[in-house]
Nucleic acid binder design. Structure first.
Lengths: 259, 259
DNA sequence: CAGTGGTCTAGACCACATC
DNA sequence: ATGTGGTCTAGACCACTGG
């Protein structure tokens, strides 16, 4: 029986140096923090099942209902996936249509769901600009890896992506390795580098296509394009990816749901 | 003590004619449906407190924990707002920064949060086009009300909105009444017409400004604009608003969070 | 069949807001 | 002090999956 010291109703346990008072943290929240650590540390690996609720309850010395609340929270954060009768699994970008498509918001105007094809243009090493450094919490000049690719829907190029990654986290990433990999970009990052994309912030603008972009996307220069800038975060809200997509929105659009 | 017949574990009670089998529906789900009806019927009015959990538990003849699960679900749907120590309240567009801003995704590039000003251009009666009829579940030619307005941030026009409403739901809506009202558009709809906007779907595209739009927004014709098309739904997923916003994205952007 | 998650209960106690 | 929502427990039973 592993250690798993449960600290019980001890106040001031919330993550981060919170010096703003007692800050009562409920038990299930503490359990959630402990479980998040197991996920981050790779004790429970993507796609695998975690221990059952009763097992975890015994381990943490709390009731099954309390473990349940912690798991519920992790499931709504998309870190875990519950499957009745089977178990609770670590979410992954590798399988599952739902997880995979969570970050892809481009749809065809007619509902048709033609699969998109990714064509990698180039991979090069570079240095972080001031802007990138700020967004990725690096120092200006820190080494980064820049990928460029085109997404094609129904044979026509629709999205031109530029992806910037901190080189320290993605050592050994080459064009050959990306080309050899079958699956989505985030699945590639997850399985090959252990970097899991959990959450993202996007800013959308309309811009005019410049000469180079127009050529890649096979449109006239000056064509309005949807510019989607994204910062993606992993555990602990650490930013680990910046990307900008330029989308031709003649036959496609960016879809969003406001709950 | 009101009626409130609880049907208990009786299968096939889910909303809609579901002929796909037994379709077990848990108790808390049934309670949620009953409570949604009270909200829709106006038994509990926007801004007011609903009965306490123990009160509702007695009324529905279930345990407090079951009522709690129903309320939890309604709270995550943004229909109710819980306030510890005070009670549970019906969500409203009239107060509350959070509820109000849920549907406004335009932000200034620098984080500054200048309040926007809405300038109503005109209100006119019209007939639903085929497209509008399809999206609002009307018949082509059904009467609609069309509002046009400009949103100004820091004195400069940034968004040109066109809003289409089914005339039957908004009888008596005139420019004078909108101008007289202090508050957001959705607060106006809620208080003056009892139409509550709960959920929306948006499609975003980049387009070039035409002559008329360019004039209203004080930009050159052909300037890339962010076109945001929205269909807004009320209870029972009934569409009750279509709108299109044309946004100048020089100093602003559309913000989105991917969970 | 056994094992998993999902629901429901009854009761105890805590934290917060108000009087 | 009282009433509200928030947490936690222990136990029973139901629904789903797979051997």
């Amino acid at each position: 029986m592993p250690a798993a010291t449960t600290l019980r109703i001890s106040p001031t346990l919330a993550a981060g140096a919170d010096n703003s008072g007692p800050a009562f943290s409920p038990l299930y929240q503490q359990i959630k923090t402990l479980m998040t650590r197991s996920l981050q540390a790779g004790v429970w690996r993507p796609g695998e099942a975690i221990p059952s609720e009763t097992e975890l309850a015994a381990r943490f010395k709390v009731s099954q209902g309390t473990v349940r609340k912690a798991i519920d929270a992790l499931a709504t954060d998309n870190l875990l996936v519950r499957r009745q009768g089977k178990g609770t699994f670590v979410a992954t970008h590798t399988e599952e249509k739902t997880s995979l498509l969570r970050f892809l918001r481009i749809r065809a105007n007619d509902g048709r769901d033609e699969p998109h094809v990714s064509r990698l243009l180039d991979v090069r090493r570079s240095k972080a600009t001031a802007d990138i450094a700020r967004l990725l919490e690096l120092k200006p000049g820190d080494p980064v890896i820049v990928l460029r690719r085109v997404l094609e829907h129904a044979g026509a190029p629709t999205v031109l992506d530029e992806i910037v990654l901190p080189a320290t986290l993605f050592k050994g990433l080459t064009k050959a390795k990306v080309d050899a990999y079958r699956g989505s970009m985030y699945s590639f990052f997850e399985t090959q580098f252990g970097v899991r994309m959990l959450r993202a912030q996007e800013k959308l603008r309309a811009i005019a296509a410049d000469a180079a972009g127009a050529r890649m996307l096979n449109v006239a220069p000056g064509t309005p394009l949807l510019a989607v800038e994204r910062v993606t975060f992993t555990y602990g809200d650490r930013p680990v990816e910046w990307r900008r997509g330029l989308c031709v929105t003649q036959h496609h659009h960016y879809f969003n749901e406001l709950g």
